[in-house]
């Protein structure tokens, strides 16, 4: 056993099932479980799709699963450098409705990653949201689920 991190047993059966399935098809769709920073979190590496502004770029998403997952949404942020994108803040917060008001228990880690990748793919230019500086100064690194989000257009 080298330095490989032990895979934790998540109390939520659904989390366990989802991560096992993601591991079984590691790398498919540019989505790959990276590691488990603590007993309630998992980091997932996503790869920008070919032919898009982010082609070949790797990003790290951190999922934190609340006890009531999947009835409550996971907390999802970019860690260690977030993509320059009109709906992604420099503190890693993502403006995507399914992570907040429009979350559904029928969504999965995989579905969330696909939505985020699709959001990256449809970007026209690499820019930060207009209110990036003020938003990040205001919320810092607290949970994005505490922010009041306005969703103009999920697709871009």
């Amino acid at each position: 056993m080298s330095g490989e991190r032990m895979r934790p047993i998540f109390p939520q059966k659904r989390v366990q099932k989802e991560l096992e399935s993601l591991n079984a098809r590691a790398g498919e769709d540019g989505i790959c479980v990276h590691d488990y920073p603590d007993a309630e979190s998992c980091r997932i590496q996503v790869l920008g799709a070919p032919g898009t502004l982010y082609a070949g770029e790797n990003f790290m998403l951190r999922f934190r699963f609340p006890a009531r997952y999947p009835f409550e949404s996971p907390e999802v942020v970019f860690e260690g450098g977030s993509p320059m994108h009109p709906h992604i803040y420099s503190n890693g917060h993502i403006c995507l409705s399914i992570l907040y008001d429009a979350w559904s228990p029928a969504l999965t880690v995989h579905a969330v990653c696909m939505s985020i990748l699709s959001m990256l793919s449809s970007a026209q230019e690499k820019v930060r949201p207009k209110d990036d500086a003020s938003y990040v100064a205001r919320v810092g690194h607290r949970s994005p689920k505490l922010s009041k989000w306005h969703f103009d257009d999920d697709r871009v």
């Binding site: 659904r14 099932k17 989802e18 399935s21 999947p70 228990p105 029928a106 969504l107 999965t108 579905a111």
Partner: peptide, 10 residues
């Protein structure tokens, strides 16, 4: 288009 794992328990 729903994922089996996401809905079979329901």
């Amino acid at each position: 288009g729903y994922e089996r794992m996401a809905i079979e328990d329901f």
